[in-house]
Design a protein around this nucleic acid. Structure first.
Length: 589
DNA sequence: TTTAGGG
DNA sequence: CCCTAAA
């Protein structure tokens, strides 16, 4: 196979096909790789979240439909996967996203944002607060967090604790501090943190299957399919369009919008100036602007038998990620983001936990559940988003397709059945510690799809909306996949034969089955190969390419470059001599 | 959709 | 690898 011949011996003449002599487009095997997705008519993850959150709006008069006990994952306000110095994967509050990324406008009426920033908050202003006046909603927020939960006037201040986020487990589970107890001291002290012991039950497990010998098994995480699928406009920031680099935008924008340090700074002020109300107010104003003030949950129970809740945050399920050691940090981050994005973009059900206990009976009234103005012990009211198999309102329209297969072929699903088997058992749904004590076999442990919602067959029935939603939810840069020597060999071989201007043909010829190698990739690789061949071996990086191959690269490159030049010369010549025949000449060439 | 190049 | 102008 490795014929080491000089260029001339390849019989280029015979294979020298005019660049435009390719098979008609219609006859070509096509791949909708770069298909752009219309974002407008799709619900983004946040919208969905908002929808979910909407159900939490007790003000609508509806009682909690789904009460779950021993809940597991909750979400925080939003998802942000930058890892602060505190080594705490914090997820930025949705509120933040809404504020800074102009999502408020796109949120559903009863959406998260609305709940957080709108009515509830406004209502909160009605609470009188010494020294504060009701003009600033944040004073109320401040109030609810800095003052021991309890009765204050007519209102019972409840605390819906926001808790953490995404924790990554490697060999052992890594507990990730919550915003509440790690970053925001001021909050921690006054609000009850709910137990996170059960976190592992709610885990997504990401595991790219990188198999050297079978490119097809490589995780699709980086594939365009997924990429587009996960592209999210909510990461994009203010503009739904005019942003060609969503993923970059994501990082840049959120890095700016999530100044942990700054928030910490404020928290310190809070700690040291506990008695200075004005300072504290200021602090929260600052927090409001830069942190997750609105992300924390606070509920209010008014005296008119209506419970008013302010969902300040959701926790996100714990995610487990398995990634090769040699993967880049960037790819890890992207994986996490994808996971969370996917998580948020899919159907969920809301879990409720009152005083640490999961409330499962959906038929109970709030009062029966203990959520009432009379209950002064309501110091812990937690909501969570859980992968749900029971979210008709979000799944009804789903065609019975298998989006799962299409979208995330990467993730093994061996355990799916067993997992699904115990549908109504949250713990079973999310085997505690995919990495932990759950004696999961080595080959089966890495099985839980990142997309928690993908667990259920019903969930696989995604509507087009949700599919696209997903597409938008995690547009990521494809993972880097260095070409193997074998691949280089194949590439060189093909280019020697076809030339440097027919990448699609090269693709078909030598990489037909390598879905992750687009003709653009091949073209780019050739470009780098040529460069590599020109520089000294010392300057080369990565897996060394045999000099023999590089020589061939250079030869072929030189040959085809010259070939193209000659062709061009002929064209120009003909153009001068008899312009009218030029067209015919071109065709002949 | 492909090609060709810059980023 | 990404992004795009052009074709």
């Amino acid at each position: 196979m490795v014929s080491h011949k000089c260029v001339e011996q390849f019989g280029y003449k015979d294979s020298l096909l005019p660049p435009n002599a390719r098979a008609p487009r219609s006859a070509r095997k096509r791949r909708s790789i770069e298909k752009s997705i219309s974002e407008d008519d799709n619900m983004c993850a946040i919208d969905l979240l908002a929808t979910v959150a909407g159900h939490l709006s007790f003000e609508s008069g509806c009682s909690l439909d789904k009460l779950i006990e021993d809940h597991r994952v909750v979400t925080q306000n939003s998802v942000k996967l930058e890892f602060p110095e505190e080594d705490t994967p914090l997820i930025p509050p949705v509120a933040l996203l809404s504020q800074e990324n102009s999502y408020q406008g796109s949120l559903s009426p009863c959406g998260f944002s609305s709940v957080i920033n709108g009515k509830v908050e406004d209502e909160a202003e009605d609470f009188s607060y010494s020294g504060g006046g009701g003009s600033d909603a944040f004073q109320v927020g401040n109030f609810s967090e800095d003052v021991k939960p309890g009765i204050d006037g007519d209102a019972v201040v409840l605390d819906a604790r926001p808790n953490v986020v995404v924790s990554l487990g490697s060999s052992s589970r890594t507990e990730v501090p919550s915003i509440g107890n790690c970053v925001s001291h001021g909050v921690r002290d006054d609000v009850n943190l709910f137990s996170r012991d059960d976190d592992e039950n709610f885990s997504g497990y990401i595991r790219p299957r990188v198999t050297k010998n079978s490119p097809r098994t490589v995780p699709r995480i980086g594939d365009r399919r997924i990429r587009k699928i996960l592209a999210s406009r909510h990461w994009k920031g203010s503009s739904r369009h005019a942003d060609t680099k969503p993923w970059r935008n994501y990082y840049s924008q959120h890095q700016k919008s999530y100044p942990i340090k700054k928030r910490k700074y404020f928290d310190h002020i809070s700690d040291s100036m506990t008695d200075d109300y004005r300072l504290r107010t200021k602090m929260h104003r600052g927090s409001r602007k830069v942190s997750s003030m609105k992300g924390h949950g606070t509920s209010f129970v008014s005296s008119d038998s209506h419970v008013k809740l302010r969902i300040k945050s959701f926790r996100v399920p714990e995610l487990f990620i398995e990634i090769p050691e040699d993967a880049t940090v960037g790819s890890l981050k992207r994986m996490v983001m994808e996971a969370v994005s996917t998580l948020l973009s899919d159907g969920h059900r809301v879990g409720l936990m009152v005083q640490g206990k999961k409330v499962r009976d959906d038929n109970k009234t709030l009062h029966q559940t203990g959520i009432s103005q009379d209950n002064t012990q309501l110091d812990s009211l937690d909501f969570s988003l859980e992968p749900s198999s029971e979210m008709p309102q979000l799944l009804t329209s789903h065609p019975s397709g298998h989006a799962y297969e299409e979208v995330l072929p990467v993730y093994q699903t061996a355990n799916l059945d067993s997992v699904l088997g115990s549908d109504h058992n949250d713990a079973a749904l999310f085997p505690s510690g995919p990495l932990g004590n759950n004696d999961m076999a080595e080959d089966s442990k890495a099985t839980i799809p990142v997309a928690l919602t993908e667990f259920s067959p019903r969930k696989s029935k995604k509507s087009e909306q949700q599919k696209q939603q997903q597409q938008q939810a995690a547009a990521q840069r494809r993972i880097r996949r260095p070409f193997s020597v074998t691949e280089v060999e194949a590439l060189v071989q093909a280019v020697e034969k076809l030339g440097t201007g027919r990448w699609r043909d090269v693709k078909v010829r030598a990489f037909e089955d390598a879905d992750h190698r687009t003709y653009v990739d091949l073209k780019d690789k050739w470009k780098t190969l040529v460069h590599t061949a020109k520089i000294s071996p010392q300057q080369r990086r990565g897996e060394p390419v045999p000099q023999e191959l590089l020589d061939r690269v250079l030869n072929a490159h030189g040959y085809w470059t010259q070939q193209q030049m000659q062709l061009q010369e002929n064209v120009n010549k003909q153009l001068q001599e008899s312009p009218s025949q030029t067209e015919g000449m071109l065709l002949l060439n």
